[in-house]
Each structure stands twice: as structure tokens, then as C-alpha cells.
Computed example of a mutant assay.
Amino acid sequence: MSFIHRALSVLQRSFQTQHEIEDAYLAGSVDIYDLERRMRELDKRDAQEPFHLRHSI
């Protein structure tokens, strides 16, 4: 059982969370205006299509 637990733990760490992906996207901004544009883009996306609907079948 511990082998399965360790394997799942390693597998889980290999995938980025949505929060990490968004942080990396925001960190890639070149100036304050680009950062603000990216933040508005993420806010607009979340308002138009909530997370629980974006990943449903």
C-alpha cells in the first residue's frame, strides 16, 4: 500500500495546479500595464466561465 501511496504522491507533484499556472502567467508580464491586462483577462475568464464549469464534461 505504501508503494501506491508514494507513486501517487510523485505523480501528483508532477502536475501544476491552476493557481501555479496563473501565477506563472502573471509573472511573465513585462510591466505594470501588462500585469494589469493579464489580471483583467483572468478575471474576465473566471466571470464568463466559472472553474467548475470550465472543467466539466
Rank of each mutant, 00 (worst) to 15 (best):
E20S: 03
F51H: 13
R54Q: 00
H19E: 09
V10D: 14
Q12E: 15
A7P: 05
Q16I: 12
L11Y: 08
K44D: 05
L8D: 07
R45K: 10
F51Q: 09
F3E: 12
I4F: 10
G28H: 01
I32Y: 06
R6C: 14
L8C: 09
D43F: 01
L53C: 09
A27P: 01
D31V: 10
E41H: 08
Y25F: 03
L11H: 05
H52G: 07
H19M: 07
R13T: 06
A24W: 01
H55C: 03
Y25N: 07
Q18T: 05
H52P: 02
H55I: 02
R6S: 11
Q16C: 14
D43N: 09
I32C: 05
L8A: 09
E36P: 00
D23I: 06
R37W: 09
D46Y: 09
A27Q: 06
E36L: 15
Y33A: 07
K44N: 11
S14N: 09
R37M: 15
Q18P: 05
F51L: 10
S56W: 10
F15P: 04
F3D: 11
E22H: 00
R54Y: 00
I4Y: 12
A27S: 06
Y33I: 06
L42F: 03
D43T: 03
Q12P: 06
R38N: 02
D31S: 08
I57K: 15
A24R: 10
L35W: 04
L35C: 06
V30A: 08
Q12D: 11
Q48N: 09
V10K: 15
E36Y: 14
V30P: 00
Q12A: 13
H5I: 13
Y25P: 00
E20G: 02
R45T: 07
P50C: 05
R37K: 13
R45D: 03
Y33F: 15
E36R: 11
R45S: 10
R13P: 01
A24V: 07
A24G: 07
I21Q: 03
L8Q: 07
I4E: 08
H19P: 03
A7W: 15
F15Q: 06
E49V: 02
Q18D: 01
E36C: 10
L11V: 10
E49T: 05
L8V: 06
I4D: 11
H52C: 12
E36Q: 12
R45M: 10
E49P: 05
Q16D: 13
A47S: 15
S9A: 13
A7D: 07
K44Q: 11
Y25M: 03
L42M: 06
E49K: 05
S14V: 14
T17M: 02
R38E: 04
F51R: 13
L26E: 03
M1W: 11
S14I: 13
